[in-house]
Simulated assay, not measured.
Amino acid sequence: MSSKGPVGGALAIEIEMRAEAASSIRALGQRIERQLSELQQLGQQVRAMAPSPARNKKLAEYEEKRLDAEYRKWTLIVQREAMGLYNHDDVEEIYRVPPKLS
């Protein structure tokens, strides 16, 4: 039995696992980008509305989506850390979640 067999097999599995993790991170990033774009549009709608029950409803929708975007960004950071990536400055730069509106 060759000593290179298990190492090569383990390496192949490691490569496949990292590729799968990278694909997952990429997909999550794309979802966050779409969500942030929708959130920006929703924020513009809220800012353009006069105070009313309809505005309050849109504002609540905005805040729910904003919190979800924060959560998704956090899951992206957790997945990156699981892959050994600990500097998240790029994540903070690229995926800027807008502030609360009032």
Rank of each mutant, 00 (worst) to 15 (best):
A48M: 13
L36M: 09
E81N: 07
P53S: 07
V91P: 02
I77S: 11
K65F: 04
L11V: 12
S24N: 10
K65S: 06
E92C: 01
A27Q: 14
E63H: 13
A50M: 09
Q30C: 02
Q79M: 07
A48W: 05
V78S: 01
S102A: 08
E92K: 11
S37F: 03
V46W: 12
P6R: 11
L36Q: 00
E38N: 15
E61M: 05
E16Y: 10
E63L: 09
K57Q: 09
Q41W: 05
A60L: 03
A27I: 07
A22F: 10
I25F: 00
S52P: 07
E61R: 06
V46G: 14
A10W: 07
D68R: 12
L42V: 02
R96G: 01
G84R: 11
L76D: 02
K65P: 01
Y95I: 08
V78I: 07
V7R: 13
L67G: 02
L39G: 02
K57S: 02
Q30E: 15
A19G: 07
P99R: 04
S23G: 15
R26N: 14
G5I: 11
M83Y: 00
A27F: 05
E93S: 09
L36P: 08
E63A: 11
R72A: 06
Q44N: 10
W74V: 04
G8L: 15
L67I: 00
P6G: 04
L67Y: 02
Q30F: 10
E70I: 03
I15T: 14
P6Q: 10
A82L: 14
P51F: 08
L67W: 04
A27T: 14
K65D: 03
L85M: 01
P51W: 06
V97D: 01
H88G: 01
G29D: 04
A10V: 06
P98H: 04
V91K: 00
E33K: 13
A54I: 02
M1L: 12
V78Q: 07
A12D: 14
A82H: 08
K100D: 00
R18A: 09
G8F: 06
E64R: 13
G8A: 10
L76P: 08
I15C: 08
L59T: 00
R26C: 13
L67K: 11
I13N: 03
K65M: 14
H88R: 08
L85Y: 02
T75G: 00
M1N: 11
R26A: 15
Q30H: 14
G43V: 08
Q41A: 12
V7I: 15
A27W: 04
R31M: 10
G5C: 03
T75A: 01
K73R: 12
I15G: 00
I94D: 06
I25N: 13
E81T: 04
A54D: 03
A27M: 11
S37M: 05
S52M: 05
S24T: 09
A50L: 12
Y62L: 02
R34A: 10
R72T: 07
L76F: 02
L36A: 06
Y86P: 00
E33M: 08
A27C: 00
R80D: 09
E20M: 13
S37W: 04
S37H: 02
M83N: 06
D89V: 11
S23C: 06
P98Q: 04
P99V: 01
T75V: 03
S23Y: 11
G43K: 13
L42I: 03
E64F: 10
M49W: 03
E63W: 09
